[in-house]
Write a protein that binds this DNA or RNA. Structure first.
Lengths: 138, 138
DNA sequence: GTGTTTGCAAAGTGTTTGCAATTTA
DNA sequence: TAAATTGCAAACACTTTGCAAACAC
């Protein structure tokens, strides 16, 4: 959410998804989308929101994250069993995951070339291809 | 664990990891490694073991899976938040994941070419590169 | 015998859900 | 006012842990 398109972008997406622009959703969208590309868990976002004085429950944060994901404002990334990360970068790209800290960052799609993808079985289509580069202290 | 190396392989690995070849560990190893490449969750393996008349608790299955992973008999694969899969194929390869059924299968490393990997930050090394091709009904 | 392993049940995580109260259009 | 949304607490699925009994060497 850059300065020159204040809420229009979010409002459009919410509207397209049939979601009312409530106080909580707008506040969370602001936290999520104003600071550039982010990778965040529900707990982290909830803490941030509370710290910022936004009255919102963890349950609503979870609901909102999933609604935003469905509305294409976010993308879910699975790197650790038992923790869901949400990525504000919804364009095609890959991930670098620091196993010691749980820190997740983007890798530009151009930085990794994936070729010769398998042909999916009949009646199936490729939803997406994820590349996760896992790094750890050497 | 093929017919011509009955328990030697498992015994060696357990030994190398300082793990005693107990009834439970040997039985689980047999289930895991005798049937070729498998992708299995702790619950699934526990069910199989119980069905096969092996007396083992779910806690022990979890412990054993992690010990086997540390001993390089298994590899853990993360494809879904909140569920851990263990792969009996420990060599380098990629995965095809059916999002509707949770079914996981291997993709030969030769089937996907990953190039131009990013250089890890200082003091970090690439632990591994995972490619997950997610498919769903079209 | 001594140290390891097991099993149970309890505790822990992260996430989802039911429902009354609140808010939005 | 009608329908959507929220918050709480309870329920959930999966996983880990503490500790006494059982087992391996």
């Amino acid at each position: 959410m850059s300065a020159d398109r204040p809420y229009t972008y979010v409002l459009e997406r919410l509207n397209a998804a049939g979601l009312r622009p409530t106080r909580q959703r707008l506040a969370l969208a602001k936290l999520l989308l104003e600071a550039g590309d982010r990778h965040i868990t529900a707990e982290q976002l909830h803490s941030e929101a509370v710290a910022a004085g936004i009255k919102v429950s963890l349950a609503t944060v979870y609901n909102t994250l999933h609604q935003f994901t469905k509305a294409a404002l976010l993308r879910e990334v699975v790197v650790e069993a038992g923790r869901a990360y949400f990525d504000t970068n919804t364009s095609e790209h890959h991930h670098l995951f620091r196993e010691d800290t749980g820190e997740l960052s983007d890798i530009a799609p151009s930085a990794i070339a994936v070729s010769e993808l398998p042909v999916p079985p009949d009646g199936m289509t490729i939803d997406r291809v994820e590349v996760i580069v896992r790094i750890k202290p050497s």
